[in-house]
């Protein structure tokens, strides 16, 4: 195999260069980071929720989804439900050892730095500067990495469709652009949902806790979890009793892969040099062997 040194360097240069161009600049720019203070957010006060499921109903209406089953029928609460492709939000009931049962509305939390968006290889999941995490069906490949990544098990996939898409709450992004509140917040009869800017909602949540210290757990779920989420929750019983995970940590999920992604350009830089060195070394040794052989042809091959 004879390859000219010049060609060889060219190849190394090419492979390194193209790789570096591709990744150095982008490894850090993983999501558009809006200022979380000013982004759209929602405060869910579970102590106020009466479990009427109006939010489910209007959500289905504005998103053209089938009407939720068993509206007005308490038996729906006998089983825990999760969001589905046809239901972007669901309300579950949890027993309260010291009082009235607690109702919890679930939907996408619109994380400040969403795992789903940093998972998506075609930017079909996108964190908008305004706050909502939206989904572009026209881009989605259906790889479902967003579902693996989301710590809240929110995105759902249309398993029974030949041309499937992922479905989740997009915080009524279109309505927000028109200056309207999300349908759920606008129609909640118990004022359990308060829509606003994240900073203001945090103030309101804290005020409620300070003013009624006995009525609330002193924790705003979503203030720090996974780096902060757009949806914030208040409760009067410990959050773990409401099925909330307490072990998610406060580190934004994109950071978990950031280290790996920043190592990529390093590999692209160091590997060619290293391997090229190894090759040059073996090549030279071989040439030396060959000359030796040429000098003393009787020498036995080893």
């Amino acid at each position: 195999m004879d390859l000219k040194r010049r060609d060889f360097l060219k190849i190394i240069g090419l492979s390194t260069g193209s790789g570096l161009l591709g990744w150095v600049g982008t490894a850090n720019a993983y999501v558009t980071k809006p200022d979380p203070h000013d982004s759209a957010a929602m405060l869910v006060d579970t102590t106020r929720c009466v479990g009427c499921r109006t939010c489910e109903m209007v959500c289905a209406e504005v998103n053209n989804l089938p009407e939720p089953a068993l509206l007005g029928d308490e038996s729906i609460f006998e089983q825990k439900r999760t969001t589905e492709t046809y239901a972007h939000t669901v309300v579950n009931r949890y027993p309260n050892p010291t009082g009235e049962p607690v109702y919890v509305k679930t939907q996408c939390r619109h994380c400040n730095e969403p795992a789903c968006a940093s998972a998506c290889l075609v930017k079909a999941m996108e964190k908008t500067p305004e706050g909502p995490v939206v989904y572009h069906e026209e881009r989605c490949m259906g790889c479902r990495y967003c579902m693996v990544a989301c710590p809240f098990y929110i995105p759902k996939f249309e398993w029974s469709k030949a041309v499937p898409a992922v479905r989740k709450c997009i915080f009524c992004f279109e309505r927000q652009k028109e200056g309207l509140e999300p349908a759920c917040a606008e129609n909640c009869p118990a004022e359990a949902l308060k829509f606003g800017k994240r900073k203001e909602l945090l103030e309101i949540a804290r005020t409620r806790i300070y003013q009624n210290p006995d009525q609330y757990i002193h924790h705003i779920y979503g203030e720090h979890e996974v780096g902060g989420t757009g949806w914030l929750y208040l409760s009067n019983i410990p959050f773990e009793q409401l099925g909330f995970r307490m072990d998610l940590g406060t580190r934004p999920y994109p950071e978990f892969t950031k280290g790996f992604l920043t190592a990529v350009p390093l590999v692209l830089l160091i590997w060619p040099a290293l391997l090229g060195g190894v090759y040059a070394f073996t090549n030279q040794r071989e040439q030396m062997n060959n000359t030796e052989k040429a000098v003393s042809p009787i020498k036995k091959e080893v």
Binding site: W23, C120, L121, V122, K123, M141, C143, F260, V264
Partner: peptide, 15 residues
């Protein structure tokens, strides 16, 4: 798509 149309270089899957 990830090759020619929509780039999501922040994703490990893109890589």
């Amino acid at each position: 798509y990830p090759m020619f149309i929509y780039y999501g270089p922040a994703s490990v899957l893109f890589l």
